[in-house]
């Protein structure tokens, strides 16, 4: 398959019981880019993101065929260490999900799980992660205050920082701005621009304007199918498929 791809999704089908949520997906994803998967609700975006770090394993009665390769290794191989995989591929959910503990403990939660980090090293990790997520200046004086008291936008950046603290290779973002105001959205988008230098980012945007603003490449999903994918510019101005054109011009969705 495509040379230099970070992730390659190959003939991937996904089922919730008898319901098929993804249909024969084939998609290579390049490193250091923002790839956006967009489409109407229930088109399979969240399922695809959660398949990529196998959070779908937590749901009872799911099934899949096909493979997903990360750096050439099938993540569904039985030898894959799940906790390690999830550290390499981090996910941010659509609603901010701070854990009910302090800001510091939220960020340190992931690093502490592996027990390799001593306290002084933790301080460094937390500061670095918060800086990368553009949250440090706002919270540096109340690191030990509860994360639940942050605003929605700050909480979402906290969730991004929490992932970054693990120094993953791939970032999955599932409509990370859906509950946020325009100002918070802008600051998260700026954060994403900074991050793509070091990470491979797959983003399900909460509207197609965001997709066109931040992404390098885009894939249009409809009813579990990948209709087409290509450079953002091409997808939004000269889509090859009639359905993509109808969606990006607002004829449906």
């Amino acid at each position: 398959m495509s040379q230099g791809s970070k992730i390659v999704i190959k003939d991937f089908n996904f089922y919730y019981g008898a319901v098929q949520a993804l249909r024969n997906i084939n998609l290579p994803i390049q490193p250091n880019q923002i790839f956006t998967i967009f489409g109407p609700a229930r088109s399979g975006k969240t399922t695809l993101l959660k398949s990529l770090n196998r959070l779908t394993d937590l749901i009872f009665g799911t099934n899949h065929t096909g493979s997903i390769f990360l750096d050439g290794t099938d993540i569904y191989d039985s030898k894959v260490d799940l906790t390690h995989l999830r550290r390499r591929i981090g996910i941010v959910f659509d609603l901010p999900t701070p854990l009910p503990m302090s800001i510091f403990d939220n960020i340190a939660y992931g690093p502490k799980l592996s027990r390799t980090n001593r306290r002084n090293r933790l301080n460094e990790i937390v500061e670095k992660a918060l800086r990368s997520a553009a949250l440090w200046e706002e919270v540096k004086d109340r690191l030990h205050g509860s994360a639940l008291r942050l605003s929605g936008g700050q909480q979402q950046r906290l969730c991004i920082a929490r992932i970054l603290a693990l120094e993953p290779e791939v970032l999955l973002l599932d409509e990370p701005c859906s509950g946020l105001d325009p100002i918070s959205t802008t600051s998260i988008e700026e954060t994403l621009f900074q991050l793509k230098k070091d990470y491979t980012i797959i983003l399900a945007p909460h509207n197609i304007q965001q997709a066109s603003r931040v992404a390098d490449r885009a894939g249009f999903f409809l009813n579990g199918e990948l209709v087409e994918e290509g450079p953002v510019y091409q997808i939004f101005t000269k889509p090859r498929d009639k359905r993509t054109e109808d969606y990006v011009t607002g004829k449906f969705g």
Binding site: T83, G90, L95, T97, L99, G110, L113
Partner: peptide
């Protein structure tokens, strides 16, 4: 349920998720 999902997504095992979250 999102608390558990977060813990797993950060690489937590079931035991860590139960005892820490």
């Amino acid at each position: 349920p999102s608390y558990r999902e977060v813990s797993y997504s950060l690489g937590g095992t079931k035991w860590q998720t139960i005892t820490r979250v």
